[in-house]
Amino acid sequence: MAMIDYQNDNAVLVMTKGHPFNREDFLSVFDGIEGINACSVEQPASQAFFNPELAKDYRAFVLYDMPGMDFFKADADDGLAPRYIEPPTSFKENFLALLEQGHGFVFLHHTIAAWPAWPEYAEIIGGKFLYKPGQIRGVDYPDSGYRHEITHQVSVLQDHPVTAGVSQTFSINDELYLSHVFDDSVIPLLSSDYDYCDSNFYSSQQAVTGTMFSREGWHHAPGHNLIGWVKHYKNSPIVYLQCGDSKAAYDSTEYQTLLSNAINWVASDEAKQWARDRNNHE
């Protein structure tokens, strides 16, 4: 991504910031994706590109950001950090306008925790990770769980352009989440063989308050082992890949293939027509 490729009009915008990551390791993955002209922009500046006039210069957006939370201040409503921040009205309006037009979106890893004060965002992506106890679809839940550096087996659940060329089962070392998947609105692509029970994860709220790798007094119902899916929202094709926490995952050829496939699929006319057809039949 260091050089400007003026010969390649397959432009993709990669959005980051809000969660720690190694910038060089992550962005180097895009240098290896053949045919894609990727550039990156950070939050909150990236919000400007949701303006439909600016977005039309990019065939797809890849989100690796986690906006909407102030981890350094408690919320007045519950006394807990992070403090939730409402997205700007103009950003929400532009985002929904893009979804109506039919823009391609790939959401990665910690994006599932973004914009917790805006419930519709979770519906767009297809799930939600909670950094503190809260409501999802009107039901109270505890904070979600995390677990770093887990080597687990991933299974491909069905043939799809996103999984083309990916082994039916493969091993990857990555961070996993005990969070929420809206399985009534997603098409499953990838699952993990890890046991999604609270004794295998740590409390995210305890991590926020300074106690990493703790689950003392924390309980969470068994979670979903689905870690990759496709869906539509309005007229837009969407992919979520839970993989992608660190270099161990970035270096996986299977991850690189999934990411490349996901970008190319959501940017394609076929995927956008698929989303429109699904939207029209709802």
Rank of each mutant, 00 (worst) to 15 (best):
Q43V: 14
G18S: 11
D159N: 15
A164H: 14
A38N: 00
F107I: 03
S204W: 01
S185P: 07
D5H: 06
T253W: 12
M66L: 13
K234M: 14
A275I: 02
I263D: 02
V166T: 03
L176R: 06
D77K: 15
S179T: 14
V62D: 08
S167L: 14
V154T: 14
Y240H: 10
K234W: 12
H109K: 08
A81T: 00
D5R: 03
R137Y: 11
E149F: 00
V62K: 06
H103I: 06
K92G: 02
I4H: 12
Q205W: 06
I33D: 00
D78T: 10
Y240A: 10
I33T: 02
P116N: 08
T253G: 00
K231V: 02
F170V: 13
A55L: 05
H220P: 01
S191L: 05
H224C: 15
V62I: 13
E93I: 07
D174F: 11
A248H: 10
D195Y: 06
Y250R: 03
G79F: 10
S46I: 03
Q153L: 07
H152T: 15
D174L: 10
F61R: 01
P161T: 03
Y6G: 09
M69S: 13
G217Q: 10
E175I: 05
W229N: 06
E86W: 09
P44T: 05
R83S: 05
S28F: 02
G228S: 11
T111A: 09
R23P: 01
R276H: 10
E53V: 09
I238C: 04
H281W: 12
D9L: 04
A267L: 08
P87S: 06
G223R: 05
Y233P: 01
E270D: 13
P67E: 02
A74P: 03
H148T: 10
F26L: 12
R278C: 04
D77A: 15
K56D: 07
Y6F: 15
Y58G: 02
M1V: 03
V162Q: 06
E216T: 05
D277M: 12
L258W: 06
G35V: 08
G134F: 08
D159H: 15
C197N: 14
A114W: 05
M66P: 03
P67Q: 04
L80N: 01
G104I: 07
S260K: 12
D195G: 09
N10I: 07
F50G: 00
N235P: 02
L190A: 11
Y202G: 01
E282T: 10
G68D: 02
A271D: 06
H152V: 09
D77C: 11
W218Y: 11
M66E: 11
R276I: 13
T257F: 09
K128I: 11
F107E: 02
Y177P: 08
Y58L: 03
D5Y: 10
Q135V: 05
S28K: 14
A117I: 04
F71A: 04
